[in-house]
Amino acid sequence: MARKITYQQAINEALDQEMSRDPSVIVMGEDNAGGEGSPGEMDAWGGVLGVTKGLYHKHPGRVLDTPISESAFIGAAIGAACNGLRPVAELMFVDFMGVCFDQIFNQAAKFRYMFGGKAETPVVIRTMYGAGFRAAAQHSQCLYSLFTHVPGLKVVVPSNPYDAKGLLIESIRDNDPVIFFENKVLYTMEGEVPEEIYTVPFGEAAILREGDDVTIVALGRMVNMAQEAAEALQKDGIHCEIIDPRTTSPLDEETILESVEKTGRLVVVDEANPRCSMASDIAGLVVRKAFGALKAPIEQVTAPHVPPPFSDVLEDLYVPNAAKIERAVTRVAEYR
């Protein structure tokens, strides 16, 4: 039986193995080791949830703790990428993009094009997203669509430990700026992960379940919920096909379209707010390119158009869940 580790361990292992393999890989972020200048232990935290724990002592000089100056250090990671390093910078929560977004979307994202194809910016920005921690409006958002909107950025949203490791290694080796979205609720998810080094390519959706009745496209944490819903729906005789795009930029359009060509029915599940989202993007794609195959209106299961609330009861209502997915799939399946 293959070894099982958590999503969090898979990310740590990917960083560790790539740092061992390639001396140009460095890691930086707030408290990524922890304890700089303080009287107690170094590597006191290994990141706010311990994801980078242990790297500091294993790779001396290559795990840099930063001041709370996201513009400066995220920008510095980008600059270092222009000068031969492969930095993996951590933007603790993606909600903090607001204080450093210029360096990402006007600088890193634009270099290649603005400079006539001469620049390579192999930087990775790891960042946590998503609701579920009762962390309220500024620590729970699901913002990958904002980054996906920007040409020049690659955007990765792994839904399980295997993909997390392979996609992170791919991100580090990729020569474009990559935003790597880690769902905080998934950190404890266990799954089979090879000890060996491997990659998962960008722009290749995973088909997690095959079915002829309804296509469900789900991202990140929503993939598990879609699987739960599909299992229940199968008992009612509705066979779902589940597609996890894994990267939103590039997006594996072909796999989504092929599936909808087969099923004619689509439900998109996205933890983000619905407007200008991956849900609306994928729905738009299917309407443009597979209109003839559609047998029912497309359903989106998303958070509502409100910020993430604090109170547990409200947050639980806010996030899509298996029951909501089941209802949407049933509506789509029964539409005549």
Binding site: I68, F96, R134, A135, A136, A137, Q138, P309, F310, L314
Partner: peptide
């Protein structure tokens, strides 16, 4: 109950809010 510990605010008291964003 919408804000929680990190977002307690009372504008009637001139309290513009705790803040989840450092700075």
């Amino acid at each position: 109950g919408k804000g929680g510990s990190m977002h307690i605010a009372d504008l009637s008291k001139g309290m513009l809010g705790a803040n989840g964003i450092v700075g």
